[in-house]
Design a protein around this nucleic acid. Structure first.
Length: 488
RNA sequence: GUCCCCGUCGUCUAGCUCGGCCUAGGACACCGGCCUUUCACGUCGGUAACACGGGUUCAAAUCCCGUCGGGGACGCCA
């Protein structure tokens, strides 16, 4: 049997990191087994669903490189287009006496919950409407419709005895007493099906063989299985993944800072890094830390998924991003960095080869694209700001002469402006003034970059080129002599 | 409160299914050495964990029981 898994986000907000990991695992399991990955949109809650968040979810998945075999834009995979199907099934359950109308008011339900709490019982529906409608009348019951005055809900008649066993692919066996399962609402009074009901029909209709989701859904599973049984259907296999927690050990949420996929994209992270981080949170393949998408496809399985919740560790993600910064092809980095340069309001250089050289000198010093662009400021702007402290320390009058000599030597270099020739020029200046490299390199660094921290000085000069290098050196000479303002 | 899930370094984890190879391995972070024109990269080394208590056994991180701790679910949200 071909494996079919799904990811079913609700378009009620941004695509969350913890949430997308469940989708990723479902995706990997499908790919590992040459199966199909289905994207379904759980938008029954029309009040909270928005087109914007749907777009963000789809774009986030595309950015990550998670592709689906079936799903949007095909309307068939939107729950909102399947209401007829849900109605028909609910009616069927009603006719068979497997569901019944509930006339309880919200106030009544609240009182019930409070009472249960007082008596130290699990708060839940006590089934008072279960037998309120005679079997014969059940055949005539219609679905709720507020406008037609049918202001009630439809509840599922849950079994009162026995147990429901969930043999989870990750957690193992969990046994639930059926008495723990109260009669849940399958149709709201506004005529909209609820999640637990709709999801069962969808998982069945779309042929899901494996339902992969967060373990916060584990308590829903026996209820959903009972609905499958009532409908005469066979439930899929389940795999409940441990959740992702924030640093405080609580369920990851917005208050933990950046949690959406787009937040990380905008912070200058690579999709490869995010995916790699997510896959290693709750899954492992021996001691391997770095995984290409293909390797994830090849190795992923539930046997190597952990059972315990994991805490989201932003530092490890950063490290992975840094890893990909160093490993990804320069052409790719050139492509990816441009939007971040634009965001700064700087002109994006047209010469990709030059950008590659620039990035080559920075990639080992920046962990994100945002950081890289910040470091690249002195490469990308002619107006550099010289740090006053650095100037005070390294641009003193007695360095003016060596700097002038360096400027002349560099200017005199023939067409070849490579690192070796630059080094040669430096060595000549060093010998002439009897200086150590550091004594010249730091002032030059300040002159060219504005600060005391930068890539190797020969690299910087090679990338900057003759004209800009010499101009900045000459400017620094005046500064060292105390005749120029700090900013030029 | 009730039900369910979970418990190896600060964090992610290997090992647990089939007890001995575990003096508990790797990674991030942290600390120190080396490299060095700055900052990094790199490299070498270090600190650091089997939640606790009972069993079973010649032998337990690995099997059993209990305790404690953490999380999740209890909605006309998904």
């Amino acid at each position: 049997m071909t494996v079919r898994t799904r990811y079913a986000p609700s378009p009620t907000g941004a695509l969350h990191i913890g949430n997308v990991r469940s989708g990723l695992f479902a995706y990997l399991f499908a790919r590992h087994n040459q199966g199909a990955f289905i994207l379904r949109i759980d938008d029954t809650d029309q009040e909270r669903s928005t087109a914007e968040s749907l777009d963000e979810i789809l774009d986030s998945l595309r950015w990550l490189g998670v592709d689906w075999d079936e799903g949007p834009p095909d309307r068939k995979y939107f729950q909102s287009s399947r209401f007829e199907r849900y109605r028909e099934s609910a009616l069927k359950l009603l006719r068979e006496g497997k569901a019944y109308p509930c006339y309880c008011t919200t106030a009544e339900l609240d009182a019930m919950r409070k009472a249960a709490e007082r008596e130290h019982r699990k708060p839940g529906y006590d089934g008072r409407c279960r037998d309120r409608t005679a079997p014969a009348d059940l055949l005539k019951v219609e679905l709720p419709d507020k406008r037609a005055g049918r202001n009630y809900t439809i509840r599922f008649r849950s079994p009162r005895e026995g147990t429901t066993v969930v043999d989870d692919l990750i957690k193992g066996r969990a046994v639930f007493e059926n008495t723990e399962l109260d009669d849940l609402i399958i149709f709201r009074s506004d005529g909209v099906p609820t999640y637990n009901f709709a999801t069962v029909l969808d998982d069945s209709d779309f042929g899901m063989t494996h339902v992969v989701r967060g373990d916060d859904h584990l308590p829903n599973t026996p209820r959903q299985m009972q609905i499958f049984y009532a409908l005469g259907l066979i439930p899929p296999a389940y795999a409940h993944l441990p959740m992702v927690m924030g640093p405080d050990g609580q369920k990851l949420s917005k208050r933990h800072g950046a949690t959406s996929v787009f937040a990380y994209r905008d912070l200058g992270y690579f999709p490869e890094a995010l995916l790699n981080y997510l896959v290693r949170l709750g899954w492992s393949h021996g001691d391997q830390e770095i995984f290409s998408l293909q390797e994830m496809f090849d190795y992923f399985d539930f046997a190597n998924c952990g059972k315990s919740a994991g805490i989201f560790n932003a530092e490890k993600l950063l490290w992975l991003n840094f890893h990909y910064m160093k490993e990804l092809p320069l052409t790719r980095l050139v492509h990816d960095v441009k939007p971040f340069i634009e965001l700064k309001g700087w002109t994006v250089p047209g010469d990709d080869v030059w950008l590659e050289k620039m990035i080559a000198t920075l990639r080992e010093r920046a962990k994100t694209l945002v950081e890289l662009v910040e470091f690249a400021s002195f490469y990308l702007n002619d107006e550099i700001t010289i740090d006053p402290k650095a100037a005070a320390k390294f641009l003193k009058p007695d360095i003016a002469e060596p700097l002038a000599a360096a400027a002349d030597e560099l200017d005199a270099l023939e067409s070849d402006f490579a690192e070796v020739s630059i080094q040669g020029a430096f060595e000549r200046v060093l010998a002439r003034f009897n200086l150590k490299l550091g004594q010249l390199a730091q002032p030059v660094r300040v002159a060219l970059t504005g600060g005391t921290v930068s890539p190797g000085i020969y690299e910087v000069i090679a990338v900057l080129g003759r004209a800009r290098t010499v101009a900045r050196l000459r400017n620094a000479i005046s500064l060292a002599q105390g005749t120029e303002p700090l900013t030029h």
